[in-house]
Amino acid sequence: MKRYKDEEKIKAEKSNASSLIEFILLGFSDVPNLQWILFGIFLIMYLTILMCNSTIVLITRTDPALQTPMYFFLSNFSFVEICYVTVTIPRMLVDLCTQKGNISILACATQMCFILMLGGTECLLLTAMAYDRYVAICNPLHYSLVMNHRICTQLVAACWISVIPVVIGQTYQIFSLPFCGSNRINHFICDIPPVLKLACGDTFVNEIAVYVVAMVFVMVPFMLIIFSYCKIICSILKLSSAKGRTKAFSTCSSHLIVVVLFYGTAGITYLQPKPNQSEITGKLLSLFYTILIPTLNPIIYTLRNKDIMAALRKLLSKILV
């Protein structure tokens, strides 16, 4: 009799899983009075991110003074930022506007795939940028030889290509799980932690896979960046000129701030054990790395960089004349 009931339960779960064709992103439905305020704030931030990063891409590609490997990587990083926020924020704005949040399983899987792919590419690009600074400061005589245009292009291509198969495989693995019972995702994007919570099968293998991928694309690049900056700081401290030390530190500080902000939130999100991460914490962290950090990044890079500010003033003078 017990065996019969278990079989019936399994059949019912499979039936529910097969009938599930969409999720509902709850988003910010717990604060209905703030929906339109949040819509206005996120829209302004999205337009700011698009405008600032597009400007960085434009001036780093057109200004002759910025045709260096450092700005080549920065323009690619800004382009990835534009793609990243375009995958997440417009969907949030539509959900805030309609106050619905229905999303098909295919659309959810597609969004997750692009979020992971672009996030992983950003991690690797930040590592490439750290390597560029390491060569520039620790091995300046061979900088033009080591960081030529062909090598820089290959590094950027590697950042994209290496992520794609891993992300597609992980997304397929997650959405191959049976989803039964509730279809409500207490989040505003299809991210791994909230989606895994809805799976009714054994998710142990998937969680291990998430940790492994996070180690490869978050922790390993982060450790390489830390190693690079240890070498950089040692080289800077050996400089006899105080002006030279200040210039070298100012060149690296913007990148280091972005690294700490980005890797800090990504590490907490994907390396923290699933039961220990509350839904509110997950939402706040996601808000941080999907909206706030992309808003701050161009500000950090432009306000602390004299070359970019000079190129920006030159561009504005051409436009206004």
Results as ranks from 00 to 15, higher is better:
Met45Val: 14
Ile37Pro: 00
Leu315Gly: 01
Ser75Val: 04
Leu320Val: 08
Val216Pro: 01
Asn16Leu: 13
Asn183Phe: 05
Thr55Trp: 06
Cys200Asp: 06
Val212Gly: 02
Ala128Ser: 11
Val163Glu: 05
Gln99Lys: 10
Phe39Ile: 09
Leu50Val: 11
Leu26Pro: 00
Ala12Val: 03
Tyr46Asn: 02
Gly119Gln: 03
Glu8Phe: 06
Pro273Gln: 03
Cys152Arg: 06
Thr121Ala: 03
Arg91Thr: 12
Gly101Ser: 04
Phe249Val: 12
Tyr131Lys: 10
Glu7Pro: 02
Gln154Phe: 11
Val205Thr: 14
Thr60Gly: 01
Leu284His: 05
Leu96Arg: 01
Val205Ser: 15
Val31Tyr: 10
Asn33Gly: 14
Tyr46Arg: 02
Ile82Thr: 07
Thr290Asp: 03
Met51Phe: 10
Ile103Asp: 00
Pro193Asp: 09
Leu237Asp: 15
Pro32Phe: 13
Gln67Lys: 14
Ile105Ser: 01
Ile257Phe: 14
Ala214Gly: 12
Ala128Arg: 03
Ser104Gly: 13
Leu177Lys: 13
Ile291Asn: 05
Leu50Arg: 04
Asn53Ser: 13
Pro90Met: 13
Ser78Gly: 12
Ile174Phe: 14
Cys252Phe: 04
Tyr172Ile: 09
Lys306Cys: 08
Leu20Lys: 11
Ser104Asn: 10
Val212Arg: 07
Phe114Asp: 03
Gly120Phe: 12
Phe249Lys: 04
Gln277Trp: 01
Pro193Val: 05
Ile192Arg: 00
Val205Tyr: 14
Lys100Gly: 15
Ile293Asn: 00
Ala136Asp: 08
Ile24Asn: 10
Leu177Thr: 07
Ser18Gln: 07
Leu315Thr: 04
Val85Cys: 15
Lys197Pro: 01
Cys230Gln: 10
Asn102Ser: 10
Gly169Ile: 05
Ala157Glu: 10
Pro165Asn: 05
Arg61Asn: 12
